[in-house]
């Protein structure tokens, strides 16, 4: 592992609240805040939910809504203005692809920290990223992890 990592540093954000520690870690490692890229991945829209069927919901509206959420979360936790992106697809795959596209030196990913049966059932995005990433991956662990 090369340390300190070469910029940029990618932090996947799922708005569960667990990403805040990961963002702070990334900021501590990065030379400057601009080197930290936040990324939220949306699952592709289905074709059958009422909002889609009546054409009230589209990908652009979803992207716009997420950008607003990014601004809210940065303001709420007193974080500096950071780059943030929205992609659509499978989270594990999209995070790795984005990191590769921007030549990231590190991905800082929060873990849900599930254990036992829950872990067997759910797996994790973090695991997928660790397996598929072309750069170093740092996993932050929840304080209340099982």
């Amino acid at each position: 592992m090369s340390w300190p990592p070469s910029p940029p540093i990618v932090v996947p954000v799922d708005f569960s609240g667990e990403e805040v520690a990961a963002v702070q870690t990334a900021l501590a490692v990065a030379a400057k805040p601009e080197d930290v890229h936040l990324l939220h991945v949306l699952y592709p829209l289905d074709a059958v939910s009422p909002g889609v069927v009546f054409a009230e919901v589209g990908d652009q509206e979803r992207r716009d809504a997420v950008q607003v959420e990014f601004d809210k979360i940065l303001a709420k936790h007193g974080l500096p203005k950071l780059q943030h992106q929205v992609r659509i697809g499978d989270p594990g795959h999209e995070v790795c692809e984005y990191a590769e596209a921007v030549g990231a030196g590190l991905i800082v990913v929060p873990s849900h920290g599930y254990g036992g049966f829950k872990r067997f059932l759910l797996g994790s995005v973090a695991e997928r990223i660790i397996r598929n990433a072309g750069c170093d991956v740092l996993v932050t662990r929840r304080s209340d992890a099982e």
Binding site: L45, D46, A47, V48, V53, F54, A55
Partner: peptide, 15 residues
């Protein structure tokens, strides 16, 4: 073709 193919127009027509 709707639920896997994601062809929304057909679902819209059906609804």
């Amino acid at each position: 073709i709707v639920i896997i193919g994601g062809i929304r127009r057909i679902a819209q027509f059906a609804e």
